[in-house]
Write a protein that binds this DNA or RNA. Sequence first.
DNA 1: AGGACACTTCGGCGCCCGCCGGACCGTGCG
DNA 2: CGCACGGTCCGGCGGGCGCCGAAGTGTCCT
Lengths: 237, 237
Amino acid sequence: MTERDPEAPGLARLAGLIADETRAACLLALLDGRAWTAGELARHAGVAASTLSEHLGKLVAGGLLAEERQGRHRYVRLADERVAHLVEDLAAQVAPQAAARRPRTLRASSAGSAMARGRTCYDHLAGRLGITVTDALTGRGLLRQDTGFALTDAGLGWFEYAGIALKPTGRRPLARACLDWTERRPHLAGVAGAALCRHALDTGWCVRIGSERAVRVTPAGEEALSELLGIDPAELR
Amino acid sequence: MTERDPEAPGLARLAGLIADETRAACLLALLDGRAWTAGELARHAGVAASTLSEHLGKLVAGGLLAEERQGRHRYVRLADERVAHLVEDLAAQVAPQAAARRPRTLRASSAGSAMARGRTCYDHLAGRLGITVTDALTGRGLLRQDTGFALTDAGLGWFEYAGIALKPTGRRPLARACLDWTERRPHLAGVAGAALCRHALDTGWCVRIGSERAVRVTPAGEEALSELLGIDPAELR
DNA sequence: AGGACACTTCGGCGCCCGCCGGACCGTGCG
DNA sequence: CGCACGGTCCGGCGGGCGCCGAAGTGTCCT
């Protein structure tokens, strides 16, 4: 009959890179958008350094990770935004089942709630913080979600007014919806999402909690978000 | 250190479903949006019926496929639009490497060109046809791609004028970009893309070529697309 | 009723791959 | 300079899984 699609082997190989629990754990950890050392990932994943070294080799060879060697350290991060998008989407597909199990231990629950309040998702804001900002933009007519997902002209003006530069880079879309897997709702990603997140961290609207992906809104951030987007500070706590 | 993400096992399991070449071939085949019998897929993939039966069992159990049993036939199709999106995205990630190898045999090349001219991608139009229509919508101010991807108000009016109903279904976005993996450019998917494709097939603007994913524009279709979107019929040949 | 056919179940085979520990190599620090 | 340490390479082990053919079940046709 018709021959098997020629891209089937490539598809299988790509999926195979993610199909290992240890590698999956690495990719999820790297979703914070930062570079980790091989050792950190090995401890995080709970396997021997030698094992993780091989995993990194495969992920780098497969184009999912970019590496940067500094002295005796090997730093790796997600190769680009496309890979982050891919992992997000896969994780979001899994989430519906995960939503069924509720937080078990107190510690997991409180750690979970910090993450649920606000975190970074690769290079943009996510969690309730990300949703709140996205909703505020939409409610003020700066972002259009009813017929797709795009900034309006007023939205472009808002970014300019707020002093957040949006420089178009290659083919990456200016605005893109990223499905949050705790809130199960779309939030702002793409160039605009990344610029907003960077601005928020640079100007001190948010700070990272420890070395984790979770972020916290500062008093200065509350004031700025209230003024620029009419967000009630209580929503962020 | 910090514990491994709790969704790592789920992510690995999901990817594992796609990580087999035979299952990948099935998923790609099913991207045409139609239901295939187990036997058809077995012949397509070139494995024994018994082998394929087991694969289908896993894909269905994993939620990637929906099945429908009719008499002695087992029909399967992609479970929903989310799954189609996922497979598309993974395939698009693979495509860059595939683009390097050019068509080899004449037969593959001509079969490829029919697919490249126009085809369905799950439930919307893709290939050069999909791109041309998307570009025409964008050029006429009906679709906005510069700040994201969304229909404009004029675009909503166009669909109404053309007699294509857009009924919002659940959470599925009205317009969404789908990256075409032959053209490497975004084309219209989502509710609007599906409605447009269905309308095109129902009213005879396009017909399927054989039992494949490839579609051909009819003379009536050329006239309609020229009148409604100013598309030069020569672009579609 | 009987036979053809689509699909499923089962047992067995063989390969692939993730894991580890131990040896090795290079960097950085005291 | 030498030791500690991060990372890599290698051999070997074990489990998981995709494959098949043969036997079994249910459906449709004649």
